[in-house]
Design a protein around this nucleic acid. Structure first.
Lengths: 157, 157
DNA sequence: TCTTATTTGATTTTTATTATCAACAAGAGT
DNA sequence: ACTCTTGTTGATAATAAAAATCAAATAAGA
């Protein structure tokens, strides 16, 4: 597996040891592409095969992974941080998030195309862009249907 | 003052009373355009003229203002929420944030222009976009200069 | 294998935010 | 203006995510 090698290399380059705990947390996140797990959720999955690993270690590991660029910290204002693989090396993985304001579901949009905007900002503000986050808030297709249905039902009577 | 009237109207429409506490918090945020205050910071300013107002009220008020669309909740991963006026009625106020990963400074970019991207997402994902947030992470011009200076100094010897 | 600095687990501590509840005040109706 | 009702507030306690602590365990280079 290619990405695991990159992970080991990044740890090494930054001067950190490869421990069982770090490998396990990495695997849990890696096996759940498209999900956005909280520390507690990751801990719950880790516990299944490794009940000896503590929650504090999960927090520490996530913080470390974020620092060395293995994962991203996401914030959907639900009271905790959430995480996903960074894939900084792979342009094809870049995406944005659609947050449904009704059901809270989070979808991924597999496009980037902020090139024009980034170029403008870099020139105009003399700002070196290294990364960006873009979130759209609105109604997912399910909640849109549900709302229309409710509207129809109330009009019927 | 026009915006204050909109504020009163929004409170009223949503069925909330106009209290001194709410007016004061509104004024503090309104008088600090371009800043991104945390609840504690707002509380500290509020206290100057109104020491009788409690921190819990500031938290409650901010939550309420967010709900009725008076303010936005921002998250810069510094351990607390931060707030700014929403200006949803005024297109000219729409902006994005530049976050310096070195000094943490936050700049505002007074452009929007995500129209093309939004149209694509709305069609492709059948998602009703009602709002968005866009943050660019990188180096501000000051930190860029500082880094170059450090590089020169180490090369000199 | 041995050695040492790093890492971990269990626990406590910190801190942002929310809940609680009696006292209070805004605003509709008179 | 006065009253009444219900929403609101202040002080405080409660909650919960995340960080700090520290002795014991372990990765990885010698």
């Amino acid at each position: 597996m290619k990405f695991y090698e990159i992970f080991k290399q990044k740890l090494n380059e930054a001067g950190y040891k490869l421990t069982t705990q770090r490998r396990v947390v990495f695997e849990v996140i890696g096996a759940n592409e498209g999900k956005h797990f909280s520390p507690e959720e990751i801990y719950d999955i880790v516990k299944i095969d490794h009940p000896e690993i503590g929650l504090a270690t999960v927090y520490r590991t996530l913080k470390l992974f974020e620092k060395i660029g293995i994962i991203y910290r996401l914030n959907f204002n639900d009271g905790c941080s959430r995480f996903e693989m960074s894939h900084l090396d792979d342009e094809s993985h870049r995406h944005h998030h659609l947050v449904c304001i009704e059901c809270g579901k989070i979808l991924e949009v597999k496009i980037d195309s902020l090139q024009a905007l980034e170029s403008f900002v870099e020139k105009e503000y003399s700002f070196d862009i290294q990364n960006h986050t873009l979130k759209f808030y609105g109604l997912c297709s399910d909640c849109k249907k549900r709302r229309n249905k409710c509207k129809m039902e109330t009009t019927e009577s």
